Computed example of a mutant assay.
Amino acid sequence: MSILGFSVRESVQARGTEMPVDELREALKQGPVMMGPLDMGKLVYNPNSPNLGGSDHYVVALNMRGDEICLHDPAGFPNVFLTLDKLEEAWKSEFPWSSGVYRRWWSPERIEHPDLEEINRRAFTWFKSTLTEQTHDIAAQEGRTGASAILHKAAQVRAGAIDGNEWAHYVYFALPVGARRAHDYGLFFKTIHPDLSALKYGQSRQFGECQSRLVSRNWEAAATIMVALAETEAMIEASILKME
């Protein structure tokens, strides 16, 4: 929002607190409220929710009616209803990459009018700082990131060493979402950074192929395309870090 020139109100609760129903109701009087992360496995209006447990998601709340809330879900479910108790189950879920629970945003207000060149400059700065911070934080925890993490997973896949829950997470959520996001970034970079655009389009195709191989449980083919994904990721990271 700040990259585009908007301020927005944001709030989050401490873990273990009650869902802020009254605050949410008041915020909805001012307009839609973005909420998340939520656990997709708890969003029961989605018939595929049993396969999506542990996947983070964001929705927009539109209004409350009694003990139900009306949501716009960008996963293909506009104007759906969820009971408040089911909303609480999904919204109180904790994810390692998000501090606190019941996070929400509302009342966006334009405070600047950046032109496209400034928006792109801010975006480049954000991409670079985010990549640097993530790499540093994970390295500090002695974890893997980027190409190294993908290669590690490729070795596990080649050996068939992933359980059913992880398999479902990849084929139903992580790889399809990765393919879509990579394609969108390819479009974003098309005129302002053609080389990076080509890498992101290529990455999107690799995500899609990897998903296809995993669905058929062709571990060898899936691992091979994961190795190629790792090579592409390394080139993408190098390109981002060279941005000015």
Results as ranks from 00 to 15, higher is better:
residue 138 I to K: 03
residue 139 A to R: 13
residue 139 A to I: 03
residue 144 R to Y: 15
residue 145 T to R: 10
residue 146 G to S: 12
residue 146 G to N: 08
residue 147 A to G: 08
residue 148 S to A: 14
residue 148 S to V: 14
residue 149 A to T: 06
residue 150 I to T: 15
residue 150 I to S: 10
residue 151 L to D: 15
residue 152 H to V: 08
residue 154 A to M: 04
residue 155 A to C: 10
residue 156 Q to T: 09
residue 156 Q to G: 02
residue 157 V to K: 03
residue 157 V to Y: 10
residue 158 R to D: 14
residue 160 G to Y: 10
residue 163 D to Y: 05
residue 163 D to A: 02
residue 165 N to R: 14
residue 166 E to G: 02
residue 168 A to T: 12
residue 172 Y to F: 11
residue 174 A to R: 07
residue 176 P to K: 04
residue 176 P to W: 09
residue 179 A to D: 06
residue 180 R to L: 01
residue 182 A to C: 09
residue 183 H to R: 08
residue 186 G to Y: 04
residue 189 F to H: 03
residue 192 I to N: 06
residue 193 H to V: 01
residue 193 H to E: 11
residue 193 H to P: 00
residue 194 P to L: 05
residue 195 D to Y: 13
residue 196 L to N: 07
residue 196 L to K: 05
residue 197 S to R: 05
residue 197 S to E: 08
residue 199 L to K: 05
residue 199 L to Q: 08
residue 199 L to V: 03
residue 203 Q to K: 04
residue 205 R to A: 13
residue 207 F to S: 00
residue 208 G to I: 01
residue 208 G to A: 13
residue 209 E to H: 12
residue 209 E to D: 09
residue 210 C to I: 11
residue 211 Q to G: 04
residue 211 Q to W: 07
residue 212 S to E: 15
residue 213 R to S: 14
residue 213 R to L: 00
residue 214 L to V: 12
residue 215 V to Q: 14
